[in-house]
């Protein structure tokens, strides 16, 4: 091959590239703000976290490499291990009830008149826009032992008052209730959207065969919504295990650590412990758990889709 031919080919490629990448300058200009902001406030902190997790470091001294010591410390800290267990318990208290209630809600919404459906959808979504701080303030007052409305209602049924957030046996559940209240809106509306998308013909065919509501729900609605359930299960799991604003405001993690969820533990550690590496190692470990669970389930969804 002559050099001339090579040059020509190169020139042709350059021309093609120039056409293919014709907007590069403008594109980089438009992308710059987002890329710079995400770089400084998301990507760099993430890399920095990975680095600091191997260091013994505080605001007062230079970082010192300690290898996996922080990770070992975190994993052998019975307090941290306990918070993970508590996190899973909290997930169990919030996600399954939310999914069941949202499914019931969606079944109701698709079968009532348009106007009532709108009222229901708007109402269920309103708590979503309330801040955790306000939800905490309201629920703590509802739970008050003496004079709170919950115990007053229970008294009508001759049930003895409960200290709710003051009693380690009830505190986590008492934090779970406002968490469900805040999270129901989006879960329910995603459920409604998915249910509305199921072709009506399926139900018409089933009705002709004489199928009742239960049969339609079990044999049509549920299988059709399998992936939505899975999606909501994961996003619900990820959100619940990361929850810490509610216990932070409602109980500060007490009584007796009974509401110290993983992230609250990390947050409190970060604010009180001089070794930042420890808190960051804990946060990263939690991320590894979260990331692998989500990746597994997403993989599962995708493989299911291939089979279908």
């Amino acid at each position: 091959m002559t050099t001339q031919a090579i040059d020509e080919r190169r020139a042709a490629k350059r021309r093609a590239d120039r056409h293919r990448y014709r907007d590069t300058k403008l594109a980089y200009l438009l992308l710059a703000p987002v890329v710079i902001l995400l770089g400084i406030f998301v990507a760099w902190p993430a890399v920095y976290a990975a680095f600091l997790s191997f260091q013994d470091w505080s605001f007062y001294k230079d970082p010192q490499f300690v290898g996996g010591k922080n990770y070992v410390d975190v994993l052998t800290d019975p307090l941290f291990v306990a918070t993970i267990g508590r996190g899973f318990l909290f997930v169990l208290m919030t996600v399954p009830p939310m999914l069941v209630l949202a499914f019931l809600f969606a079944s109701l919404v698709v079968s009532v008149s348009r106007r009532f459906a709108t009222v229901l959808k708007v109402s269920i979504y309103i708590p979503t826009i309330i801040s955790s701080v306000i939800a905490s303030i309201v629920f703590v007052l509802i739970y008050t032992y003496d004079g709170g409305i919950l115990n007053a209602v229970l008294a009508v049924f001759h049930i003895d008052p409960v200290a709710w957030i003051g009693d380690p046996a009830w505190a986590l559940l008492s934090v779970a209730v406002p968490a469900v209240w805040l999270g129901m809106g989006i879960t329910s509306l995603i459920m409604v959207a998915a249910m509305v998308d199921i072709p009506t013909e399926y139900y018409e065919a089933a009705a002709m065969e004489g199928a009742g509501w239960w049969q339609k729900t079990f044999y049509i609605t549920m299988p059709q919504m399998k992936n939505v359930f899975l999606y909501l299960l994961i996003t619900g799991f990820v959100a619940a295990i990361q929850q810490f604003e509610l216990p932070l405001v409602m109980t500060q993690g007490g009584p007796l650590d009974s509401t110290t969820l993983p992230n609250l533990f990390i947050f409190n550690h970060f604010r009180n412990d001089v070794n930042v590496g420890y808190s960051i190692a804990a946060a990263l470990l939690l991320f590894v758990v979260l990331g692998s669970v989500s990746a597994l389930v997403f993989k599962f969804i995708n493989s299911e889709r291939l089979v279908d």
Binding site: D23, T24, A27, F41, A46, Y48, Q242, A283, F287, G291
Partner: peptide
């Protein structure tokens, strides 16, 4: 149409998967 379009897109989207607590501290 620009160079490294796909790489940049994946990089931007990946930031969605970084959990809040990890980067909250840093």
């Amino acid at each position: 149409q620009f160079r490294f379009q796909r790489t940049l897109w994946v990089a931007v989207i990946t930031t969605m998967f970084i959990p809040g607590m990890t980067i909250l501290l840093t």
